[in-house]
Design a binder for these strands. Structure first.
Lengths: 108, 108
DNA sequence: AATGTTTATCGTAATATTACAATATAGATA
DNA sequence: TATCTATATTGTAATATTACGATAAACATT
């Protein structure tokens, strides 16, 4: 017990959940906010910007990358992380659809 | 150690993270999907619909409710759960803003 | 080559989440 | 009121997440 029963849900449900989960931590939202603000980014910057140790930030960046929310390219001896909008589109579409459907419902 | 350092982040960052986190489990996405499908709902239905025990579903419903994603009204001896679109709007607006910003960036 | 800088990984302690059996609670119905 | 039905709560085991010190890896610079 304790582990999520991934195989009982559809691929789409798992996909949405994985992306949402990656955004389910304020440090990761703060990283996204910072990436938007600076328009381009080096991880070291984030370490100075956030109240977390370097290994913790590296771990959060990894999760955002695994979820497809950011992509990183090697830039000399540091790494440039950027937002990957395709993945954000998936979520936006999902929410848009929900809102449209609910608006047409007469319930509760 | 181990606990999220909530007070180091902005209220808005925490708010987005809490909502996203609530959607970060496939069972909860499945519940949202089901609520959309049936247009109105009783918890018992969900228990028959999902491969999870009744207490587990009750727990997931509680989390969705705490995050403001659904609302429940007592309906005789059962409970009618519905989607609360206001909260989905918050996320949709957040993602829309991200996508607009990123599209105008020339990075990586 | 030695040193410095930047980022990742390992190990691990603290905490949180997930799932469910057992049980409680609340309202409906007999 | 006794019983049934629907949902919530409690307790707890299994697992996952979060945070960070220590260390490694990769590249740059001296």
């Amino acid at each position: 017990m304790g582990a999520t029963k991934t195989d009982h849900f559809t691929d789409r449900q798992n996909q949405i959940a994985i992306i949402a989960k990656a955004l389910g931590h304020p440090a990761r939202i703060a990283i996204i906010d910072y990436l938007l603000k600076v328009n381009s980014c080096i991880c070291g910057d984030i370490v100075n910007e956030l109240p977390l140790a370097q290994p913790t930030i590296s771990q959060h960046l990894k999760e955002l990358k695994n979820a497809g929310l950011i992509k990183g390219s090697i830039e000399g001896n540091s790494i440039c992380y950027c937002i990957d909008e395709k993945t954000f589109d998936i979520l936006k579409d999902y929410f848009s659809k929900i809102i449209t459907t609910v608006t047409n419902q007469k319930c509760c």
